[in-house]
Write a protein that binds this DNA or RNA. Structure first.
Lengths: 337, 337
DNA sequence: GAGACTTACTTATACGTATAACTAAAGACA
DNA sequence: TGTCTTTAGTTATACGTATAAGTAAGTCTC
């Protein structure tokens, strides 16, 4: 009894109230119950308050097999698209009693594997993630531990195995729409800057399809990152083409597009006078720079992911099959076109 | 034995290997020990792999009284200053085996109280936080549960009570330096846009001190948020002053400054020709917009906070007194002055 | 050949909680 | 008066792990 600084437990309350720990647990958990008479119940509640009792989350977790935690696995939280997603996730998760754990994977296979390893230790009850290197099929053994998973981005429909949901906007349709906008504005030489992985893939698809349908030649510049630096590099390459350089450039995300804008300005070109530039995501900065882009509803995506996970965690939640939840995108026209 | 989908435990390995659970635990935890002969140890390790055993994080947490989790409590993760902080925190925490939990408080008293409540349930081993409404003195009962706390921002030195560390840059000196820069450039009417809480307080202090020393009249516009919208509102107020409107405006953070830039441009003013605008934080967007600002090393602040917490969690870590860890700021001059 | 020591384990316990199963005492009813 | 029910609890157990304490069999020592 020498360390009175330790957090008080139900046992301490029980001791003080002259009842058993079980009785304390019953009083604290079952709001209305006839099993404990009012005087006793009030004595226990009063003592709990005086002693400063807080339930032990770890103990509850072990006993209930619920961590009350959702994991959010993203490539890099400093990519401005993700904080909004996290915020949406939290806004829905917190009122339901769930905390949010964050993992950055750096978009690397090892990073993603590490995140999955942590999930398999039972650190969270569910996870929403953006994986570049694992497909839904690779994740079934994680999900098999009854761990609900929501992936960002469209997933091919799988049959059999545990349910894995996905939330997304239609990237192909969105980049197609953006490409059509550029064509409508009279552009013929339209290049797209992409990375060789992640969301770039599908976005390039929509672009390529529309270009070919319009009888135009797609020009893809592939870099190895979704960063502003990648945009700068790629734009310099494009500008080095001289006379037949593109009149419009489509960045696979806003960071790339912003980098491209910088490089264009450095080269003394005006936007959109000399070259039009568009992006994808509508991160907060896009608005400030007047970048025409595709708006993704990050907050709603996060909130939807959270709702989906929480639903799956209800008693019969894992009964239903995998769902693909699509939200609407929006083309936001600003001054860069 | 009907639900073979449940995660395997040490007991399952023990059963398969024909030993007791304790032996399995010893083999899995103590790399080299003479207590278990090599053949047995190898058999156990092999079976653990085959069965797909993963230690149960919740069980470990209860047994070891360690959650291996650090909490990060911020007003709003979508404020671009924080993702970098979180990243720095993670980069240091993850290799040490710690996961990072995020809470948004919205900068409200209830939000902050809720976050503290979660901490008191033992969800994390330590926390780094930005509190607007609680001072170190208010946090002692949280810290008393032996929960190391790192606060962002300078804290007055307390004596007695559990140690609470802080990491920060010298906000007063930084805003003083920025104000001096504006004065050096010939500005006389310099206004500052602040919020009535949070980091605004100390930043206003440095500004006010330098202005008075220079014999100039400080003009503080107080809004109720650190957002771009707040900057727009305040700037409109300033511009409505007509002829004696300020020639330079200092935003308490970059979001406010960016809002001010927008409002100035809308009013047809050129920056820095008609009005100079500076901010504080050096969020990624500041670079893109050419905003002169104070650079805070967010990644380093996060990493330092993580290192501090982890140190405190070592056996004798809580022996030393509270520490105040100051990092250097930097004035980043761009085109807005 | 008896005691001490080593080897290779095992048994038991604790962490804090939630809950199923039990029980002693009091009251109701015939 | 004896049985049944209700009341107000209690005891016991489990979640999965880590570790202290114990032990049976074999080996060594003198």
């Amino acid at each position: 009894m020498q360390h009175r600084s330790a957090r008080p437990t139900q046992k301490d309350i029980a001791l003080a109230a002259g009842v058993s720990q079980a009785t304390v647990s019953i009083v604290l958990n079952r709001a209305e119950t006839s099993a404990v008479p009012v005087p006793t119940r009030e004595r226990i509640l009063r003592l709990a308050g005086e002693i400063g009792y807080r339930p032990s989350h770890p103990a509850r977790t072990l006993r209930n097999a619920r961590t009350m935690t959702l994991a959010c696995i993203v490539p890099d939280i400093t990519n401005p698209f993700y904080p909004g997603l996290v915020r949406g996730l939290q806004a829905t998760a917190a009122p339901a009693g769930y905390a949010v754990l964050i993992y950055d994977t750096d978009g690397t296979p090892e990073g993603e594997r590490r995140a999955l390893g942590w999930l398999q230790q039972g650190r969270a009850d569910g996870a929403v993630g953006m994986f570049y290197h694992f497909r839904a099929a690779d994740l079934t053994d994680v999900a098999r531990g009854n761990l609900p998973l929501v992936l960002l981005g469209r997933q091919s429909v799988r049959r059999g195995g545990p349910p894995i949901d996905s939330v997304f906007i239609d990237n192909v349709a969105a980049s197609a729409a953006m490409t059509r906008l550029l064509i409508r504005r009279g552009h013929r030489r339209i290049a797209m800057i992409v990375a060789g992985f992640g969301p770039s893939q599908v976005r390039a698809e929509g672009y390529g399809k529309v270009m070919r349908e319009a009888g135009l030649a797609p020009q893809l510049i592939v870099d190895n990152a979704h960063s502003a630096e990648a945009g700068v590099r790629a734009m310099r390459t494009l500008l080095a083409q001289g006379g037949d350089r593109p009149t419009a450039v489509f960045g696979a995300n806003d960071m790339i597009a912003i980098g491209a804008m910088q490089a264009a300005r450095e080269a003394g070109l005006s936007i959109p006078g000399d070259v039009a530039i568009v992006g994808f995501d509508d991160i907060p900065t896009a608005n400030l720079l007047g970048l025409t882009t595709v708006r993704q509803p990050e907050l709603e995506l996060g909130a939807l992911a959270a709702r989906t996970l929480i639903e799956r965690l209800q008693p019969e939640g894992s009964r239903t099959a995998s769902r693909s939840l699509e939200l609407d995108f929006e083309i936001v026209e600003r001054s860069s076109v």
